[in-house]
Design a protein around this nucleic acid. Structure first.
Lengths: 234, 234
DNA sequence: AATTATATGTTGCAAAAGCAACGAAGAAGT
DNA sequence: ACTTCTTCGTTGCTTTTGCAACATATAATT
């Protein structure tokens, strides 16, 4: 199931440039790093789910191709969805920070996918020969965390609002800002949005209906239109 | 108000060892880094508040002595409390990740305090001469983010609970686990706890009273006792 | 000790949210 | 076209929450 990347066909190296974690590295630096860190390579067909043995659960994973869904199961057996990673994203953002050692991590391919796993120690343990490479990659790792942190901050901002109405408006405000338009599609179903805002789905629908009736917003399924932006920014 | 650290009395260097960001660095490495990055030095008396000009707001700050409170004011004039940093903590955890450039950052000394500000570029821009130093510090930065991340995750866990009662129980569960005891002091006033859980203070008191009446917990001011741990873990 | 100030608890009431059950609208499969 | 499934909206009812106003308690100041 797992093999070292260096033993895989060299075609894989060429795709690594585009991945955030390897930004700014030259071909030979990537090659040098792979020689040094011996990352694991996993390929998944669509729908395939594999469990990482615990000793691998804290590794930095880079999605080389496809789209994977990562979940964890804690000691009580509760399965928690962590995040969907798409090609180029590296979960270093998550794993290097949260300590998932000793939890069961599952990776599911939402389509045919390829993932490599990198031992964080290969970045963390000082090695003068590749210090410059390590440094570049660490910076990439920190940078890639920004996106995750912003996502969390945005959700926190929504969650700290006291009413469903305000939570919705906060959420739409973020959508509006990141799309630059007053018209956009949201990437969730109602159920998922309710879960994201930590409210009841029915109550969410009710509040959405009120906002529509008041002419603040309009929507149909995933498509939303903000009619009165005054309500958003505060 | 701000001067370069290297122009300050050398006594400051000796205290840097203990700071998370400088862990694992030798004296000469710290010296070398300071020479290279020219960090700013700020000293605050108790109660003093200073505003960082915008170009400094994204800097990595390390609290060398004392206890400081950091807040940001966004373009709408809303002042948001960010975090209290105590000696040794580096806000790199925050600043390197969240982009606070162009927001007004204020630093308030909760007691007489000293802070140094480090330009993130001095860690990010590759420089072969000090690559090893940079690498060590980047790892320290990532490690220090773990604490912040866990704190945020815990709060999120509380916030996603639907009722005040459940939010309280989640919160107490975390206190219980991190203290290892069923008896502990919480580091907040009621008002602050209410704000942390994003609920009304009066409603919080009501729920706390109910839990006390039911014999699940007992408390007096900041001191809490969990009487029935069955309620916590689930 | 008396006086402020601050923190915490209490309570009535209106508004909001949760829950459950059902119905409508699509989407997917046969 | 018909069934089946999923998603979404609706509604009645109950519970919870927020809000405001006040009471009590504790700490700080003089």
């Amino acid at each position: 199931m797992k093999r070292y990347l260096e033993n895989i066909k060299t075609g894989h190296f060429s795709t690594l440039h585009d991945k955030v974690l390897f930004n700014g590295l030259t071909d030979s630096e990537i090659y040098e790093f792979v020689q040094h860190s011996k990352p694991y390579y996993i390929s998944l067909y669509q729908g395939q789910t594999i469990s990482l043995e615990k000793q691998y659960s804290n590794m930095i994973s880079v999605v080389v191709a496809g789209d994977v869904l990562i979940s964890s199961t804690d000691s009580n057996g509760n399965k928690t969805y962590i995040k969907t990673f798409t090609e180029g994203e590296s979960s270093g953002s998550l794993y290097s920070i949260l300590d998932y050692s000793n939890t069961l991590i599952e990776i599911e391919g939402k389509e045919d996918s390829e993932v490599i796993l990198i031992d964080p120690d290969s970045l963390y343990v000082t090695d003068k020969k590749i210090a410059v490479i390590q440094q570049k990659m660490l910076v990439n790792l920190i940078r890639s965390q920004k996106g995750l942190f912003n996502a969390i901050s945005e959700r926190m901002y929504c969650l700290t609002q006291r009413s469903i109405r305000e939570k919705i408006l906060r959420f739409l405000s973020f959508c509006h800002n990141s799309n630059g338009s007053t018209e956009f599609d949201i990437p969730m179903t109602r159920e998922e949005l309710a879960s994201y805002l930590a409210v009841d789905r029915a109550a969410l629908s009710r509040s959405l209906g009120e906002l529509k009736k008041e002419g603040v917003i309009d929507f149909h399924k995933n498509h939303f239109i903000v009619l009165d932006t005054d309500f958003l920014s505060k």
